[in-house]
């Protein structure tokens, strides 16, 4: 799976964490660069054009969302995976709405992190249990009338998939529980990600507005 040598760029303002990730991932991926600040990250990513950027949510000068905002215009093919110790819902939702394809916490095991990078590179969305919880929280409760039911509500199946993820099931296990294929699980999750990025739901916009993204 990792034979294709995905080109990865690391962005984190904690050197210790950076060196830890480097030693964990160095054997499986081609690490094309790293940066410790928003401006270095933007310059480095544009210069090295990596496949996947592992992006810290919390950094001075705007954090991960600022990096995505600046890079996405020039390098639309670069995929971002957000990584953070933060549990604050507004931070996570903000960086997803800026364009990250997934969110994992820093306590993730090296194997899971590697899998997440591969999955993001493949175009899939990566939902950790915590992110699934945030999304269920954000989309809970009815809104009447829904301005855009297509975007502002989860289908029952999507909510079901997210609930399994929040309960700690891996995608494979979710597929087995629901008697659907892995690919279908991926489709549901990607659709939820799209809603998360495009929905104008009050809770989502409020969270994003807290981080001055809108």
């Amino acid at each position: 799976m990792t034979d294709q040598r995905i080109r990865v760029f690391l962005v984190d303002d904690h050197r210790l964490f950076l060196s830890g990730v480097r030693s964990e991932l160095g054997a499986r991926f081609e690490l094309v660069g790293e940066a410790g600040s928003v401006s270095d990250a933007i310059a480095g990513i544009v210069a090295s054009n990596p496949d996947v950027v592992l992006l810290d949510v919390h950094m001075p000068d705007g954090g991960g969302a600022a990096v995505i905002g600046a890079v996405a215009k020039n390098r639309p093919d670069v995929r971002f995976l957000a990584l953070s110790v933060s549990d604050a819902a507004e931070d996570v939702i903000a960086v997803i709405r800026a364009g990250a394809r997934g969110y994992v916490t820093k306590s993730i095991s090296p194997d899971d992190l590697a899998n997440a990078i591969v999955r993001v590179h493949g175009g899939d969305a990566v939902f950790s249990p915590r992110l699934a919880g945030f999304v269920l929280d954000a989309f809970s409760g009815e809104i009447e009338p829904a301005p855009d039911p297509e975007l502002d509500q989860l289908t029952p199946r999507e909510a079901e998939v997210l609930r399994y993820i929040a309960r700690g099931y891996a995608y494979k296990q979710v597929a087995r529980q629901l008697n659907i294929s892995n690919k279908t699980v991926e489709t549901h999750v990607s659709s939820v990600l799209r809603k998360l990025q495009l929905s104008s739901r009050h809770e989502l916009t409020r969270w994003a507005a807290d981080r001055r993204l809108i």
Binding site: S107, P129, R130, A132, G133, L136, D137, S140, A166, R167, G168
Partner: peptide
């Protein structure tokens, strides 16, 4: 042990 808690609502 490590307990991962996810709480909605």
């Amino acid at each position: 042990v490590a307990i991962e808690t996810v709480i909605v609502g």
